[in-house]
C-alpha cells in the first residue's frame, strides 16, 4: 500500500458571504504526516473537509479552485464522491461510532462498498482492530454496541473503521482533543506507524503534538495559508512573523 499526494491549487471557500479559505495552494506529500496548525476558527477543519468533499454538506457553500488527489481533480465533473471518500478516510474530533455493534462498525465501510463475504469481513475486522491495538481488548465482545466502549477505545474504533476500506489518505481533525492523555498517546503512536502506508493530514491546535508527529506543517491564519514547509523549518526557522508569533504562543 502507498499513500497518494494531494495538490491544492487556488482553493477559495466562501460560506454565505464570508471568505473562509483564501487562495490556498499547497502540495501535500504522500506517506508523510502533514499537520495543519493555526488558531481556532482559522479554517483548519474546513480545509480538511475540502479534501473528501464533506464540505458539500454545508449549505450555501461556494468553492473555487482545484484539489487533486493522486492526479485526479476531486471537484471535477463525473467524480464519484462515494469512491472518493473510500479513498480518503476521515476521523472526527469527537469519536462518532455508528449505532451498531463493534463488528458492524468496522464492517460498515466494506459492506457499503460491496464486500459481503463473512469470512472476508471477519478478516478485515480482525486486521483493522489489530492495527489500532484494540483487538485483544474487544475480541470477546465484538457483538456489543460500540457505544459501550470507553471514549478512547471509541476513537481507536473510528480509526479502525476508516482503515477498513483501505484508504490512501487519512484526514484527522483534532482526533485526540476529547481523549485522556493515555488514549491520546495511543492514537499518536498508531498514526506515526501508519504513515508508511498512508498520506496523513492531521489538524491540531496543540503545537507540541504537531512537533512530535509532523513531517510537514501548514500554518493557517484567518483563512490564509501563511507558511508551509518541513516541520523543522516551520518550527525552528519560521519565515513569516505571524508564524513566529503563533509558535511563541502570542495568539494562544
Amino acid at each position: 500500500m502507498a499513500g497518494k499526494p494531494i495538490t491544492i491549487s487556488h482553493l477559495n471557500v466562501r460560506i454565505g458571504d464570508r471568505n473562509i479559505l483564501k487562495d490556498i495552494s499547497v502540495s501535500i506529500p504522500p506517506n508523510k504526516i502533514t499537520a495543519i496548525i493555526g488558531p481556532s476558527g482559522c479554517g483548519k477543519s474546513t480545509m480538511l473537509k475540502c479534501m473528501n468533499r464533506m464540505i458539500d454538506l454545508v449549505e450555501e457553500i461556494d468553492i473555487e479552485g482545484d484539489v487533486h488527489i493522486d492526479g485526479e481533480n476531486i471537484y471535477g465533473s463525473g467524480i464519484d464522491v462515494s469512491l472518493l471518500r473510500k479513498k480518503v478516510g476521515m476521523i472526527a474530533q469527537t469519536p462518532n461510532p455508528l449505532p451498531m455493534s463493534i463488528y458492524d462498525n468496522i464492517a460498515y465501510g466494506p459492506r457499503i462498498h460491496g464486500q459481503r463475504k463473512r469470512t472476508d469481513l471477519d478478516e478485515i475486522v480482525e486486521r483493522c482492530l489489530n492495527t489500532v491495538g484494540l483487538w485483544s481488548e474487544v475480541k470477546e465482545r465484538l457483538e456489543d454496541p460500540a457505544a459501550k466502549l470507553s471514549i478512547g477505545q471509541q476513537q481507536r474504533l473510528c480509526l479502525a473503521r476508516a482503515l477498513a476500506v483501505q484508504p490512501e489518505v487519512l484526514l484527522c481533525d483534532e482526533v485526540t482533543s476529547s481523549l485522556d492523555p493515555v488514549s491520546a498517546k495511543h492514537i499518536e503512536t498508531e498514526l506515526s506507524s501508519l504513515k508508511n502506508d498512508y498520506t496523513i493530514v492531521f489538524v491540531t491546535h496543540i503545537l507540541r503534538q504537531a512537533k512530535r508527529l509532523a513531517d510537514y506543517v501548514i500554518f493557517l491564519y484567518l483563512g490564509e495559508l501563511v507558511e508551509y514547509g518541513p516541520a523543522n523549518e516551520v518550527f525552528f526557522h519560521p519565515k513569516d512573523p505571524r508564524t513566529a508569533a503563533y509558535i511563541e504562543g502570542v495568539f494562544g
Binding site: 464533506m54 454538506l57 469512491l83 469527537t94
Partner: peptide
C-alpha cells in the same frame, strides 16, 4: 455526528438513512 460518520465512509444519503439514522 453519526450521519457524518456514515457519509464520510462513502455511504450515500439513502444508505445513511437506512443503516444509521433509521436504526
Amino acid at each position: 455526528d453519526m450521519r457524518i460518520a456514515s457519509l464520510a465512509m462513502g455511504a450515500n444519503r439513502w444508505e445513511t438513512v437506512k443503516y444509521v439514522v433509521f436504526r
